[in-house]
Write a protein that binds this DNA or RNA. Structure first.
Length: 828
RNA sequence: GGGGAAGUGGCGAAACGGUAUACGCAGUCGCCUCAAAAGCGACCGAGUGAGAGCUCAUGUGGGUUCGAGUCCCACCUUCCCUACCA
């Protein structure tokens, strides 16, 4: 290799990034008449450094965007920052750095690094959710939801650290203890804001059925998360107590097997019972107190089922049996009615609880043949035939469910109901670094939303971060305000919004990113939505992707945007990037930064490697070995193509070149195979560019061989391939591609060129290898012209000694012929 | 406990039900060089054979099929998600 012909990737890559930026070639225009294509990668949290895990995601999205652009579409490909959240506040608490400064510095650094990757983002649309010109629209949406009754406030339990005097996010509770001070976390009821996602539950479910561009597993996860279950809610009277206990069950057919009623300690009936049962009060309250010190996590995880009898008895409305009412730790106050009928014989949890506390186990369902009889060694969960159930004896479970439900309904004691596992979205956070909730509390006017012309409610600066309590609640200058209605003294809501609010609509803000009168204009939003291809990790399968769908349905309903009510037509789940077997993340401290990789190997080599190493949906364990192969590839391309750049430009690309022999035909074919691979991987949404890079390798290997032949520098086929090289490389190695393109004397960027349609004539082969099998095993391969007839193939095959040796003495029973592929001779 | 994904050379991996191991990494040998690096070329699943070849190999065991890495059933292993939802 001569010194002067080494590709200087450092200089070249930087120069092209600057030029692309200067010329704005990736800016998406609203008035572009070509069909739109919106490709979006999930926006990152600005943790400080971009690592190769991010790079894996963005490289894929960028290849998709570039191929669509070269295929003649008006591509929208924006980028922004999910910039609110806890790490910034922790930096403030631990190191005294202002959260805004910390975040904006991180964004600046990461934005530099994303640019370093040469990705084709339209930076004119960049957004950062922590800036007032973004979060004011969070507040605007909050008020719209409030006006529609979809944002409401009620008491809800939160994780409370008694030492730090603050609410903790679930992620900050480690084994029931505060992550910072180690104190046992308590459950407290605080007034919190909720978004009423449950109003949209049926639509969210129905939409999933239509989203066939989404992975099944994500759709399944969302369905499970929503957790729809149909059953019966009915009520028990409590003996001598003015209270009814409602329970929800999906197995009303087992109601005669109820041997106890279990309630959550928070259940309102508990207090009424205790008024009548003063002797039980102390024990029940002590029990409740031991539960209270535990977070919901701890309460629901791996915990033994315990409980305490209240002393009261409920009456089974159908059997009229007296059954004890227990307060237990395994009934969730937040789901259903906060009480369940305990049927040990037919529910695993009830069985475990009954065993432990010596409660009776009454079998009421048996196997269809009636063979299953007490005593049961475990709960029988299947449907079956009813026994010991009064007038319902002998019925099948399904029939009994209908009959019993009808009976309870007729008695006015119950009705069929649907319950959902999903709860309303709790959006209040007792935290500083988020969007202030735009609500004022007035002693006269009550809960008053901040009027639109007073938005945004700005986050105050110079707040004290002590880690004690909520910073906003402690800031009198922020909290004390005047009522927008009456002008009298009032207080602001001291909480901020869950950052998932920010990411629920950002993909629409990109489409009109600088609008200061509305979150976005309807025309612009409607022109570009929906997102054609969304790309991101599966970790957002339920939260972000469910919230965003809910938000978008609301936007459609309110007419803010028109079109389909699903925001993401297709979703692609990137596989995780691991390092040393663990997820790469800053908090784990196992981050491979991209600055070093780019400096050492070059961006194009890194991008090619990330695509080549594995199919994009696979988990990839990062290793530096292997990337040198892509560095070699980049240099090989350069050495092959650059010297011929001048000569190659003269060979037109709009038709196939003169091909003087087999070698030339193979070379041109390899080019079209690579073109075809890049295109079809994109159009089938498979995105297996690892295969496309292999085709590029084969192309360059053939080109290298061709160049060693005398006269190669004047061979039209060689020059044609060299001329086309920048185009086929452009989506994957954009800098190298544009540098070669410009060396060919082109003034414009190769990224604005058209992809070359794979030509069937170039893809055709003039000789095929026909596989000859005997009884399914390969015995010979014969070279033949395409389209060879079965009889002729058979004749040729029977001349092969390796074939006849296997048939020897046997009769040919059957022939299977796959044209141009295979002949299988079945002999016996 | 529930749900999902995946198991192919030393490694990353490829393969519309039809030539298993493309392409790359690592390795071995050679060319070039005073030497090295880079580059270029050849080889590179296991067994057997002088060789043409033959036999065995896609986690394990069955099945469907002319033919199975691919489809079906059971099991083993790994990873991810979720978790008392009545």
């Amino acid at each position: 290799m001569s010194e002067e012909n080494t590709y200087d990737f450092r200089a070249v890559e930087r120069a092209w990034q600057e030029r692309w930026e200067r010329e704005g070639i990736y800016v998406a225009r609203d008035d572009d008449p070509r069909p739109k294509y919106y490709v979006l990668e999930m926006l990152p949290y600005p943790s400080g450094d971009l690592h190769v895990g991010h790079a894996k995601n963005y490289t894929l999205g960028d290849a998709v965007a570039r191929i669509h652009r070269m295929r003649g579409q008006n591509v929208m490909h924006p980028m922004g920052w999910d910039a609110f959240g806890l790490p910034a506040e922790n930096a403030a608490i631990q190191r005294g750095i202002d959260p805004e400064t910390w975040t904006l510095e991180n964004i600046a650094n990461m934005q530099r690094q994303v640019r370093l990757m040469g990705t084709s983002y339209d930076w004119t649309r960049e957004l950062a959710s922590c800036l007032p010109d973004y979060y004011r629209w969070n507040q605007w949406f909050f008020i719209r939801l409030f006006e529609k009754g979809l944002a409401y406030k009620r008491e809800a339990p939160v994780n409370w650290c008694p030492v730090d005097q603050t609410v903790l996010a679930n992620e900050q509770v480690e084994n029931g203890r505060c992550w910072r001070c180690g104190a046992a976390v308590e459950r407290r009821n605080l007034a919190q804001w909720f978004f009423k996602i449950t109003d949209y539950v049926e639509r969210l479910l129905a939409g999933l059925d239509r989203l066939d561009g989404w992975p099944d597993r994500i759709r399944t996860m969302q369905r499970n998360w929503i957790g729809k279950s149909e059953g019966v809610t009915f009520s028990f009277d409590v003996e001598n107590v003015e209270a009814q206990i409602d329970v929800f069950t999906t197995r009303i057919d087992t109601v005669f097997g109820t041997t106890f009623v279990a309630v959550a300690p928070e259940h309102p009936a508990v207090e009424k019972i205790l008024e009548k049962m003063p002797k039980s009060r102390r024990r029940v309250e002590e029990f409740a107190a031991t539960l209270k010190s535990k977070s919901e996590l701890e309460r629901t995880q791996l915990m033994e089922k315990t409980g305490i009898p209240t002393g009261a008895y409920a009456i089974n409305p159908l059997s009229r049996e007296r059954i004890p009412v227990w307060v237990t730790n395994y009934v969730l106050a937040e789901y259903g009615t906060g009480a369940v009928m305990g049927v040990p014989a037919h529910d695993e949890r009830d069985f475990e609880f009954a065993k432990k506390h010596g409660l009776p186990i009454a079998q009421v369902i048996t196997t269809p043949d009636g063979s299953l009889r007490a005593p049961l060694s475990e709960a029988y969960l299947e449907d079956g035939k009813l026994i010991a159930s009064g007038e319902y004896i002998g019925m099948k479970s399904a029939t009994a469910r209908r009959s019993i439900a009808a009976r309870l309904e007729a008695m006015g004691r119950g009705k069929t109901t649907v319950n959902y596992r999903i709860r309303d979205w709790l959006v209040s956070r007792q935290r500083y670094w988020g969007t202030p909730i735009p609500i004022v509390y007035c002693p006269v006017d009550g809960t008053v939303p901040v009027p639109g012309d007073q938005l945004p409610v700005l986050l105050p600066k110079d707040v004290q971060f002590t880690g004690q309590g909520s910073p906003l609640a402690n800031d009198a200058a922020f909290v004390n305000t005047t009522c927008p209605k009456c002008g009298g003294p009032a207080t602001r809501d001291p909480d901020t919004m869950d950052t998932f609010v920010d990411s629920s609509w950002y993909y629409v803000r990109y489409l009109d990113a600088h609008n200061d009168r509305a979150p976005f204009g309807k025309d612009k939003a409607s022109k570009w939505m929906t997102v054609d291809q969304y790309i991101g990790g599966a970790e957002h399968a339920v939260l972000h992707l469910l919230y965003a769908r809910f938000f978008y349905m609301f936007m459609i309903d309110e007419g803010y945007v028109s079109g389909d009510d699903e925001p993401f037509a297709r979703l692609f789940n990137q596989g995780m990037l691991l390092y040393r077997g663990e997820k790469m993340s800053k908090s784990r401290g196992n981050v491979v930064g991209i600055d070093e990789a780019v400096e050492k190997y070059g961006v194009d080599a890194m991008r090619l490697f990330l695509l080549k190493a594995a199919p994009p949906e696979d988990t990839l364990d990062w290793t530096d070995e292997g990337i040198v192969g892509r560095v070699r590839f980049v240099q090989r391309v350069w050495r092959a193509a650059e010297p011929l750049a001048d000569a190659a430009r003269a060979v037109p690309l709009d038709h196939l070149p003169e091909m003087r022999g087999d070698a030339q035909r193979q070379l041109v074919r390899a080019l079209h195979v690579a073109l075809d691979s890049g295109m079809s991987e994109t159009e089938t949404y498979r995105f297996h560019y690892n295969v496309t890079t292999a085709k590029l390798d084969e192309l360059i290997n053939l080109l290298g061989s061709a160049l060693r032949e005398p006269g190669a520098a004047e061979d039209p086929a060689v020059l044609y391939v060299v001329h086309a090289l920048p185009i086929v490389l452009a989506p994957f190695a954009p800098h190298l591609a544009d540098e070669l393109w410009s060396r060919m004397g082109n003034a414009g960027s190769v990224h604005l060129e058209r992809w070359i349609e794979p030509d069937p004539a170039a893809l055709a082969v003039d000789e095929i290898t026909l596989v000859v099998q005997v009884n399914g095993k390969v015995r010979a391969r014969i070279q033949a012209a395409p389209g060879i007839a079965e009889d002729e193939a058979f004749t040729l095959a029977m001349r092969e000694p390796t074939v006849t040796a296997q048939i020897d003495g046997k009769q040919v029973r059957k022939r299977i012929f796959v044209p141009d592929k295979l002949l299988n001779i079945v002999a016996a």
